[in-house]
């Protein structure tokens, strides 16, 4: 039943653009961070773009998404308005959470984007709840839950996988295995680094895919989502990836060598896909520059939108501590 990704020209350019969009957006965020317009933590997705771009191709607007504090890529790939994301980063009222959440807590109800969670593993039980609600109310949605391999160290992961299988919930678990949990190398944290095997101990089927290859991720995600929908059963997708930069904005990176980072950079998802497109004459230089121009214009507009945004008045601080009603 494996489904081939339909690699027409437009789709290839779309994938490339989606990844470049994330990379350039974050490069701008770094600048704004250095200018102290973005504060606090800033966890970059640099190197991991193929994972969210590939997975998102397999989802429909009805599906739900949960992610971590490293969720800029997921939010952008999901189609959350870049302007609202940039404004959120800058703590503005026109941000996707009124500037209350910042970089780690993007939410967008309309796109079924349920955060942005800064507690490692925190999204997993939430995903279970979202999927259970959909199932009980007869909505045919899939819940895509992104988390780092560090979350597998936690009880929340194991409890969630168990219940997801037991209740046959339509959840796509996406483990973004970038080999490190802050400074902790995966083999120092896990007795068994075979995550697919771990999932199988809860009878959750799964596979490991090259997370630096956007087409491979898309293809695996499409198959997984088809299977989830047809069998009403969770699926586990491990994406082997790598983060090119520090965990958040600064860390001494004593836990890995410069050579290791360089070797992975050479396999970078954008670098690799773009080179492949170029060497197969699937993209013309002017198409590439058009993509970059469009992306940079979108980013400039997002920054302008954010800069112009007001601050939330302090008088509204207590709003939503408790809700007046359940939003429709």
């Amino acid at each position: 039943m494996t489904k081939k990704v339909h690699l027409d020209h437009a789709h290839l350019l779309h994938l490339l653009k989606a990844m470049i969009r994330i990379r350039h957006f974050e490069a701008k965020c770094v600048e704004l961070y250095q200018a102290q317009k973005i504060l606090g933590f800033l966890h970059l997705y640099d190197g991991e773009e193929a994972v969210s771009v590939g997975v998102m191709e397999a989802l429909t607007p009805e599906d739900a998404i949960l992610a971590t504090y490293r969720e800029h890529g997921q939010a952008l790939a999901r189609g959350v308005d870049m302007r609202c994301l940039m404004a959120e980063m800058m703590g503005k009222l026109n941000g996707c959470c009124r500037g209350r959440g910042g970089s780690m807590h993007f939410f967008d109800r309309a796109r079924r984007f349920y955060g942005g969670n800064a507690i490692v593993g925190g999204g997993l039980p939430l995903a279970l709840g979202v999927a259970l609600a959909d199932k009980m109310q007869g909505r045919p949605a899939v819940t895509a839950c992104f988390f780092g391999e560090g979350a597998v160290d936690e009880g929340e992961f194991h409890e969630t996988l168990n219940l997801a299988k037991l209740w046959r919930l339509p959840i796509l678990f996406i483990c973004e295995n970038n080999l490190y949990s802050m400074g902790m190398a995966v083999e120092r944290a896990e007795a068994d680094v075979d995550f697919v095997h771990k999932a199988s101990s809860y009878k959750v089927a799964g596979e490991k895919v090259d997370g630096m290859d956007v087409v491979a991720v898309e293809s695996a995600a499409r198959n997984a989502v088809d299977r989830i929908r047809s069998e009403s059963d969770p699926y586990f997708l491990e994406c082997a990836t790598y983060r090119f930069r520090a965990h958040s904005m600064f860390d001494a990176q004593l836990y890995r060598s410069k050579e290791e980072v360089e070797a992975w950079r050479k396999k970078g998802p954008i670098e690799r896909f773009q080179t492949w497109l170029e060497s197969n004459k699937l993209i013309k230089p002017d198409e590439l520059s058009a993509i970059e121009k469009e992306v940079d214009a979108e980013i400039a507009a997002a920054v302008a939108f954010a800069e112009a945004g007001p601050l939330e008045p302090v008088s509204e601080l207590e709003r939503f501590v408790t809700m007046e009603e359940v939003p429709a």
């Binding site: 703590g91 503005k92 500037g99 209350r100 959440g101 302090v314 601080l317 207590e318 501590v321």
Partner: peptide
């Protein structure tokens, strides 16, 4: 502290 979760935006956090 004000009785709210602590928000990200600096001016709101200061107010809390």
């Amino acid at each position: 502290a004000r009785e709210t979760p602590i928000p990200y935006a600096a001016h709101l956090e200061d107010a809390c």
